[in-house]
């Protein structure tokens, strides 16, 4: 199989939403000595871009989008050690810490956003649910993140998004990191009120927003 054929199959595995196949193709690429960066840029990334297009045009739905993202993640995880060994770096759009705020154990919204961001070229650290302001700050510092995503599903826990922003200020990190907020009760107005940098209504919107925020920085 030529490299071109391999790349086409990689893209197809992502479009088909097949994490096992994507992983197997990534391994095959390593065995064949294909440059892992090329595998990502010319194989898997065109696939995830196609998934995004199909979603935007209404042919694909959220499950297709998410499983495409999972397939992307599985492939990149296989290729990453080789990238490191070759001292190559995947072009990263930004480093993101994401989680659900304290008192709130809703998982799915932020996981979806994390998957989408990771599939679209961001390096993502998902810090989970019920995360305290202090833990968010520590994670931002530790990762050197330039983006922070705060999720809240309840009107009561939404208030803790403001607390995290205040904690960032206190730690002197507010200027280094752009803050995105989201979740069912969250509105554009609320984002402005608490001094967040952006708000998106859904996972697809969050990718556009994240790209826009890192471009501003």
């Amino acid at each position: 199989m030529s490299n071109e054929e391999l790349f086409a199959q990689m893209a197809k595995a992502i479009v088909d939403g097949d994490p096992e196949r994507a992983e197997a193709l990534a391994r095959q690429a390593l065995e064949l000595g294909v440059d892992p960066l090329e595998a990502i840029n010319r194989g898997f990334t065109p696939g995830i871009n196609r998934v995004g297009e199909l979603f935007a045009s209404g042919e694909y739905f959220l499950p297709d989008l998410v499983i495409g993202g999972e397939a992307m993640k599985a492939a990149v995880a296989v290729l990453e050690p080789e990238l490191a060994r070759r001292q190559e770096k995947r072009a990263i759009l930004g480093k993101v810490v994401i989680g659900t705020v304290e008192g709130d154990i809703h998982e799915i919204g932020k996981t979806l956003v994390a998957t989408m961001l990771s599939a679209n070229g961001f390096q993502v650290r998902d810090v989970g649910v019920d995360v305290s302001a202090e833990d968010f700050v520590a994670a931002v510092q530790d990762m050197g993140a330039n983006l922070l995503g705060l999720s809240a599903l309840l009107t009561t826990t939404m208030l803790n998004q403001r607390k995290v922003i205040e904690a960032l200020q206190k730690a002197g990190l507010r200027d280094r990191v752009k803050v995105m907020v989201g979740g069912a009760p969250v509105t554009r107005q609320w984002a402005e009120e608490i001094g967040a940098d952006g708000y998106a209504e859904d996972a697809v919107g969050s990718v556009a927003l994240a790209k826009q925020l890192v471009a501003q920085a």
Partner: peptide, 16 residues
């Protein structure tokens, strides 16, 4: 308890 059915093959197979 992870709670994310969205990323399972089962969801993709059934939702439509």
């Amino acid at each position: 308890h992870a709670g994310n059915f969205l990323k399972t093959r089962h969801t993709r197979q059934w939702f439509s």
